[in-house]
């Protein structure tokens, strides 16, 4: 089966997004850390994913947000731009609204606190747990970081162990190191 001509395919994807018919628009974007899948609903960015398998991601997104999931690159232009600026070292915070539907109350409280950790600084799992109202929940905070639906934008790479060791990262420790170095954190 021959593919649909690229111009016709692009036109449809653009029209679908412009008509507001999508539950989720996504695209795969290049970054210094490899390909990222980024996805957004009409309410905001809902997913940033390392090593994306678009087909599998689309199924997960469909279950949470609705079946009308379509790759629609233009709809993600602003996200692509902010990420590129960040990786160029020219952006210290993201001005993106987020859609965290499907995230429970405790993880939500933790992610809200995470959003306040500034560029170029690190905090610990325990500190974040305390700020989210449960100082004993450091381990649970680790799980929340690991499941962060929008890494990079919500900076879970800025959270380290009490002893200063990096501990872990959903995208792999190499990426955590790269992001902290980019932000000028001495390791």
């Amino acid at each position: 089966m021959t593919a649909v001509p690229a111009s016709v395919d692009d036109a449809f994807r653009g029209a679908a997004a412009a008509a507001g018919l999508l539950d989720v628009a996504y695209d795969v974007v290049e970054s210094p850390l490899g390909e990222l899948l980024v996805a957004a609903t009409d309410r905001g960015v809902c997913r940033v994913s390392y090593d994306p398998d678009p087909e599998r991601e689309a199924e997960v997104l469909a279950r949470v947000f609705g079946a009308r999931v379509l790759r629609a690159p233009r709809r993600l232009d602003h996200v692509r731009r902010e990420l590129a600026d960040y990786f160029d070292g020219g952006r210290y915070e993201f001005h993106l609204t987020l859609d965290l539907a499907g995230v429970g109350p405790f993880p939500r409280a933790v992610l809200d606190e995470l959003a306040r950790v500034p560029y170029g600084e690190v905090t610990t799992y325990g500190t974040l747990a305390a700020r989210a109202g449960n100082p004993r929940a450091a381990r649970a905070v680790g799980t929340v970081m690991n499941r962060n639906p929008v890494p990079i934008v919500l900076p879970c790479h800025r959270v380290v162990g009490a002893g200063g060791n990096l501990v872990g990262y959903g995208g792999g420790l190499e990426r955590k190191t790269a992001l902290l170095r980019l932000e000028g954190v001495s390791l």
Binding site: A3, V4, V8, A67, V69
Partner: peptide, 18 residues
């Protein structure tokens, strides 16, 4: 349980266009 629209589109768009 519907497949994501992207899968449905990827699967049938070529044939429909033809």
């Amino acid at each position: 349980v519907l497949p994501p629209f992207e899968s449905f589109y990827a699967r049938h768009s070529g044939e429909v266009f033809a």
